[in-house]
């Protein structure tokens, strides 16, 4: 393969990585703070895409304000879901998972009812291309890499330098101990859910500008998100980033070399094998 073609698919891979990392960060935050695998995370993501779509098409917003409003709105949905559906089942991961599974069907059916099943799309305002050393870089992909990694830095700063962020870190390391030290788990859970859902909405907003959106788009996102956090190590932010990079590059580069199907198969097989031999993930600890 040509150098430029390789560089091209690497960049595509990075853009996909950006999306995967945003999705996986939400899953990982909720898992480490609330102790549940939030299976309806894909549906939250789907709702994010629809919010952006309707803000653009019906409310006449342009892309960036629509993305910001949708992000905040979906974050609030997250807070609502945490309060109503997950808080009553804290410490009961099995039933919390049932709740989460039910939410998939509920959210999906409601969106199907309101929006219909036909795929929809909107275009990215980031048009045009950039030439660097003869490599064609589409702005609409580059912006995902920039935003994705920018948000990652912000999240890192939030966790490192705010009180709430430190509390999140403490809870993720030891739940009971954190509660004893007077950390308000309710508040921190709500923040985690808000951030997680907001990040998913950002990812979805960008995905919608690249591909079409549909009520069933969430399951794909969920699969990839779960694959990423398993690859990296459950409940670890660094793990989500590394897992997202690896899987994004696999999904970005492999289809160019082989077929999309083979790339998908390799991805799933890799996850199963990793789970069997290293259940704690690449980055996780025993």
């Amino acid at each position: 393969m040509e150098m430029t073609a390789i560089a091209q698919s690497l960049l595509n891979g990075l853009a996909i990585s950006g999306i995967y990392i945003l999705i996986a960060l939400g899953l990982t935050l909720v898992l480490s703070i609330m102790g549940i695998v939030q299976i309806s995370h894909g549906e939250i993501y789907m709702v994010g895409a629809y919010c952006v779509y309707y803000l653009i098409k019906s409310a006449g917003f342009s892309f960036i304000p629509a993305l910001i409003v949708a992000t905040l709105f979906v974050g609030c949905i997250g807070v609502f879901l945490e309060r109503v559906f997950f808080r009553p089942f804290r410490g009961d991961p099995d039933r919390a998972m049932t709740v989460s599974i039910s939410l998939i069907l509920i959210i999906q059916n409601i969106v199907l009812f309101l929006a219909g099943g036909n795929p929809k799309s909107y275009s990215s305002p980031f048009t045009g291309v950039l030439f660097i050393f003869g490599i064609v870089i589409a702005w609409k992909r580059l912006i995902i890499v920039i935003v994705g990694f920018g948000l990652l830095v912000l999240l890192f700063l939030f966790i490192r330098y705010t009180k709430t962020g430190q509390a999140m870190l403490a809870i993720s390391q030891e739940r009971e101990g954190a509660a004893l030290q007077g950390i308000n788990i309710d508040f921190v859970s709500a923040v985690a859910m808000f951030l997680g859902c907001a990040l998913a909405a950002v990812a979805a907003g960008f995905i919608g500008s690249l591909f079409s959106i549909s009520p069933t788009m969430g399951s794909f996102a969920l699969m990839k998100g779960i694959a990423v956090i398993i690859l990296g190590g459950l409940g670890s932010i660094a793990g989500a980033v590394i897992g997202g990079l690896i899987l994004g590059l696999i999904d970005g580069v492999l289809p160019a070399i082989t077929s999309t199907y083979t790339a998908g198969l390799v991805g799933f097989a890799a996850i199963i094998i990793i789970l069997l031999f290293r259940p704690q993930g690449i980055w996780g600890h025993e």
Binding site: V37, P93, M97, M223, I226, A227, I230, S259, Y261, T262, G264, L265, F268, A269, I271, I272, L275, L276, P279
Partner: peptide, 28 residues
């Protein structure tokens, strides 16, 4: 035999991926 060594959510996840692989293989 390999899957059942995993517990709880890990087992569930692996079985989801197994199903997805079946779909991909039948398509391919």
């Amino acid at each position: 035999f390999p899957f059942m060594r995993l517990k709880g959510i890990y087992f569930s996840i692996v079985t989801v991926f197994f199903s997805e692989m079946v779909v991909l293989i039948t398509q391919q």
